[in-house]
Structure formats: structure tokens, C-alpha cells
Design a protein around this nucleic acid. Structure first.
Lengths: 204, 204, 204, 204
DNA sequence: AATGAATGAGTCTTCATTCAT
DNA sequence: AATGAATGAAGACTCATTCAT
């Protein structure tokens, strides 16, 4: 949690610092990311940095929480009426929200992915704080699906949830690689629907 | 390629060094892994290390090639009779081999995953040397499946291959977490079969 | 170019660092000169050094530019009225300035000579930035001499210029060795005049 | 002085080692030259090296003595009949010999120049061992010239000798730069003669 | 609140030399 | 006579963090 001094900063300055920090953590893993570089590019002094944040971890956690909040903004609306829609529509909506988040906030998505992959000990704890949310949402969704009869009853839901989260990342990466140049387009939803048909009806 | 001096070492020492290096690369990304720590824990001098290996990359590549060979040992037998078996049996066999490799060589698997995730530029090239194998195998398998009529014709095979590789990793991670204490057990195959049924027939 | 932090230093400290750096580059070629020694003798930490200078080359270039400026202070006055004086007076003045510079700034002269001799590749570029001045000045002087009829027309001026620059170094070295103990004295000019008579009228 | 073991070596091996050592000292100053590289390229073991030579300095001194001997081979014949010829012919012959040596043994010449330039303390002593020869020869020559009346009496011969040695190096370097591509040719003597005319009769 | 100089441990890598076999 | 493994000091450089002003 940044110190109060940070929140007292004029917004412009606060955003500048955060922006450069995001740029750094997008390009480098936590361990390799450099406070030196962030400070330099932000145009603030080293001393100031340590008056805003306790240490590197403090800054990182703050950014992660910002990313988390942003992600929830995308997900929440689609969760509202889960009760009413059927399982597949809900699942599709969830994927769509996640992908839209990634497309509109590529830096945040990249940092998130980086965190998921990192195993440097420090981040282990952090990950455990952030991932359950996503996991639990998927599991809850699947349970509802089982209740509705939309999903087979004999599945290990935690495994399926884990796989589906992994799928979401794979799909986003694939889309990034494929459409790198064309820029963002939600044409991805067409492909996603084919993918959902696959989930639903199997490969065969 | 390590220098000849390394291969001239008494096996015990050679294995000790490699063991400590593996332990290091298992715990840290390439950039963060420390030669200092490796030599310290191996009980050799820094000078000696550089008489065995050209540099950090040389050591890393050597370990990667050892891992690659090991993995091939697991995969090769199952590839033998791909022509004769049907698509799903082959796919199942492939997964089984991959999972067995990961369960019996968790450190190697961890290093492999780490490499796949790394974005430090240096490893980009290395990855391209090692990953095509996996990707291509999956794609080849899927193509054969399409020819046999086992797999639907309207699929983007590269996307499906990417997802299935991601799945394999997810599955392995899941079983690591679940069976951490119980130690390795191939009871996993029972659950995997349920999973394959899912792939085949869909979630519904 | 040193970083701003360096120029912010109290003058005493700044001069101490520069002094020790000059002492190092006077005693050792660029490649052999040691940052470790410089910081140790300056009484600053290694970290501080790299907050003042980007790297070894940065420090070296800064010193070279100081030397260059100093040298120009010696040369400029004598260049003022080249147009009016005859060739031999100009040449003599040029030598005198160079020798005076070397006698009064022996460390600078030594570093300069060292640079001229270096072949380490890095300094090649640097040399090309600094030497043209000297070469060109000599050639310009000789050309003017030819126009005035003071210098024979059948000479390869580039060769003569090269020789005369070498002569200047030889002369300085000679007086260093000879008058090492006696300290600096411009009695050298008497001998130099004999030498110029030699240049003018030949050995015979 | 190399150890006896070195001289017991089969000639082929001895020459190979020396050849690689010469190649190293041609490319790098004494301090920067690497025993590691020499050993590696010679295909001998580190241990062997130190059974042939006491240390780096021992090897270097041996090479310098070889170079010295070679140079004497070029110079001696021309010195034979100094008594009989006039001063300028002798001087011209001396230059010619030196230049021919440099053209036919460029590596040796390069190492020699490097030594002359080096000031690493160690080489100071070495230089003092080797240079007097050259200096003394020039001085002797000039003295004879003075006796014959070929050379003015009012010259500081040690200074003139130093300058003339420097000139020889300048001339060789110039010729190397100018005729780099055309390969070796004694056409240089034509230019040299112009240069001697200059020495003799002065610039004017 | 802001500064920025100071720090020492850390990074990878190369070196000349020794010594037991 | 030959080997080559072992070594520790030294090289340049980066790091996150502290603290006096």
C-alpha cells in the first residue's frame, strides 16, 4: 500500500509515475524490473520514490490492485444477470469480457500474465491473493451449469476451471499473434464462437 | 556446448554441478538465476565454472538439451505406432507421456515451463529451437485426425494445438497441487480419461 | 558527458576524482586503466562513480575534452596572427606552444600520447575526433608556406606533416628525459631554434 | 629466457607456439595480451606453457630477442662498410634496411612499435635493453658524419638521433597507410630519397 | 514534501599461475 | 615431459535502498 504522500500528489504526477511503472513491469519480470529506470523515466528523484512507496513490492502490489479493479469493471456487468441466462451464454460473456479487457488494456494483461508465470517466491503470495477471484468465478459458473443440467455432472470442476482459465490466455495470445498488425477488432468473437461450439460439442 | 573439461570431470562432480544448476534454473528465471549461487552450492570456484562452460547461456542450453532428450525418451515410444491407432488413443498417449515426464521429472518440467514463459529476448531464440517440436507434433496429430474423420474439419488447427498444449500444462500443474503430498501416482490417468471424454464430446 | 550529478559535486571532490582519474590514465592505457583503482584512491564508492559517469568511456572522453580545451588555450594565441608572420616563425610558434603545453601539463601530454598510440579499436573513433585538428593545422601551415615560397613545392605535405608531428613528440620526450631533475625550463627554446635551423637548412 | 624444455621441443611445435604468441602480441599490448588465448590457439596445455616459460614476461622477452636478432640481420650488412661510404649513403642505407625489415616482417615491426609505445612499467626496463642499440647506431653514424664534415658540428646528436628514429617509424607508418592495398614494393625508396634530400638540404 | 548523493553487495566474466597426476 | 583442473583476484557495471539536507 503506497504511503499517504503518494495519494497527496497532483493527479498528473501520480499518473505519470504509475504509467512508467506499468511500462516497466510490462517489459520486465518483477525481479528484473528496475526501480532505477522507473524513477529516471518518471522524472522524479529516488528519494521521492521511497517516500511514496515502501519498496519495490509495495509499488508492484499497488499496480496489481489497480489491474484487478480494472478487470472487475469488465467482468462485473456480465455477472449481473448470470442467474437468468443459460450457462453457455454466461460462459461466452465471461470470455468476451476477459478478452475485451486484454485487448483494451494490453499492458495490464501483459503484467497479469507475467505475474501468473512468475515463481519468484515473492509473487507466489501475491498470485494467491489475486487468482482465487478468477478461479472462483469460473467454478461458481460451472456449478450453476451443473445445476441447470447444462454441464455434465461427473466433472472435477476445479480442474475444468483451471483449464478454462488457461484456455482464455491461450486464445488471447493466439489472437494477439495473428492480428498483431490489423489492430484491435472484436472480430475475434466470431472465432471465439467456433471455439465455444468446440467446448460444447467436443472435437469430434 | 560445455567444454571438454566438463565432460572430463568425475561423474560425481559433474552430476553435482548439473544438479545445483538445475535447482537454480528451477527456482529462478534465466535472467535472475545466479552463477554465483550455482558455484557456491556446487563447491567449485568461479574460475572453474568458466573452464567448464563458455558462459551462462552455455550452461543453460546444455541443461535444456538434457531436458529435451529426456522428454523425447518419454514421447518417442508413444509415437511409434501413431499410424495404426486412432486419433484419440494417440492424443491420450501423448498427454500421458507428457504428464508422466512432468511427474517423474518435476524440476525439468518446471524449467521447461519457465522457458516457455520467458520473454527476455535471449531465450526467444532458444525457445524457437525447442518448441516447434511440440507444436508441430500436435498439429500433425490433428491433421491426421481430420483425415481420418476423427476431428471436425472446420477447426483452426493452430489455435486448437495451442490450446491443447496449454491444457497439458494446466493439467500437470493441477495434479502437482492436488497430489503434492501423496507423491506421484498414475491414478491421474483415470481423471485424464474423463477429461478426454470431455474434449471428445464436449462439456455438455 | 558526465552526468549532472558529477557537476553538482563540491569542487574539491570533483577535482579529487578527476585528479585520480588523470593519474590513472597517465599511468595505464585505456584498456588497462582500472575503475576500481580510481574509486579506491578517490575515496568514493563504486556505486557513486557510476552515478557520476555512464561508464569508463564517459570518464575518459571527459578527460580528453578537458585536455583538448587546455591544449587549445596554448595554441590559439599563436594561431591569431599566422597570416602576417612568415612560415618559419609560425612553425616555431606552433612547436613552442605544443612544447610549453607538454612541459606545463605533463600528465595531460602523456595521456594524449597514450591515446595517439592506442590501437584498441574503441579509441580509434576517439582519436579521429581529436587528431584531425593537429594534422590539419600542420598541413594548412605547410600549404601556406608553399604559397609564400617558404617551402619547396615538390613535397608530399601529408608525409611531412606526419613527420613533423612525430618530431614534436620526440622533442618533448627528449626534454622530459633530459631535464627531468632540473624541472621545467624554457631554455629548451634555444635548442629548439637550433633544431629549426636544421629543419630549414638541412643537416649538412 | 625460456626453459630448456622449450628448446627440446620438436621444431614444428616450437614454431607453432612462437607463431601464435607473435600473433597475439601483434594484436594486443603486453598487458592485454592473453596467455589463455595463446595456449588455446597453439593447441598446447596450460601446464605445458609454464613448463616452457617462467611466465608471460619470459615469453615476451624471448620474442623480443628474436625480433632483435632479426633486425640485426637486416642492419648488419649495411653497417659493414660504413667506414668507406659517405655519411648520407650510410644513413640512407640504414633507413632502407629498417624499412625493408618492417615491410618483410610486419608482425615483428608492429610488436616493436607496440613496445616502444608501451609504458606499463614492466616494459620500461625491456625497452631500455633494446633501444640503446638503435640509438647508439644512429649516434655513431652522426658522429662519423660530423668528423667527415658531412654533418654540422653544432648539433645535439642525441636529440637528432631520437628524432631520426621517430622519423623512421613515421615514414613506415605513412607508407603502410598509403600503399596498404598495393602490397609491398620498394618503390618506397624513391619517396625516401626525396625525404633524404629534405633532411640534407632542409625544407626551404 | 522533496531531493539526490552515497553505498556495498551483487551481476557475469577473464586472468595468470599452480600443482597433483 | 605433459597434462588440465583448480583457483581467487580482478575486471566493468547495476541494483534497491538509506539518509542528511
Amino acid at each position: 500500500m503506497p504511503k499517504q504522500t503518494f495519494f497527496n500528489l497532483p493527479e498528473e504526477k501520480r499518473e505519470r509515475i504509475l504509467g512508467e511503472a506499468v511500462a516497466e513491469f510490462k517489459d520486465y519480470d518483477y525481479d528484473v524490473a528496475s526501480i532505477n529506470r522507473i524513477v529516471e523515466r518518471s522524472g522524479i528523484s529516488k528519494g521521492s520514490f521511497y517516500q511514496y512507496f515502501k519498496d519495490k513490492e509495495d509499488l508492484y502490489l499497488h499496480i496489481m490492485s489497480i489491474i484487478g479493479e480494472k478487470k472487475i469493471q469488465y467482468l462485473t456487468p456480465s455477472m449481473m444477470n448470470f442467474a437468468e441466462v443459460n450457462f453457455y451464454d454466461a460462459l461466452r460473456e465471461m470470455y468476451r469480457a476477459g478478452i475485451e479487457f486484454a485487448l483494451e488494456n494490453p499492458d495490464y494483461a501483459e503484467i497479469g500474465n507475467r505475474m501468473m508465470k512468475d515463481t519468484s517466491g515473492l509473487l507466489q503470495k501475491i498470485r494467491e491473493t489475486f487468482t482465487p477471484k478468477g478461479d472462483d468465478m469460473f467454478i461458481a459458473l460451472l456449478q450453476k451449469g451443473q445445476e441447470n443440467g447444462d454441464v455434465r455432472a461427473d466433472l472435477d470442476l476445479r480442474l475444468v476451471a483451471k483449464i478454462m482459465i488457461g484456455m482464455q490466455i491461450s486464445v488471447v495470445e493466439y489472437y494477439f499473434e495473428k492480428h498483431q498488425d490489423e489492430g484491435y477488432s472484436m472480430k475475434i468473437m466470431e472465432e471465439l464462437d467456433k471455439f465455444f461450439d468446440l467446448i460444447r460439442n467436443g472435437i469430434s
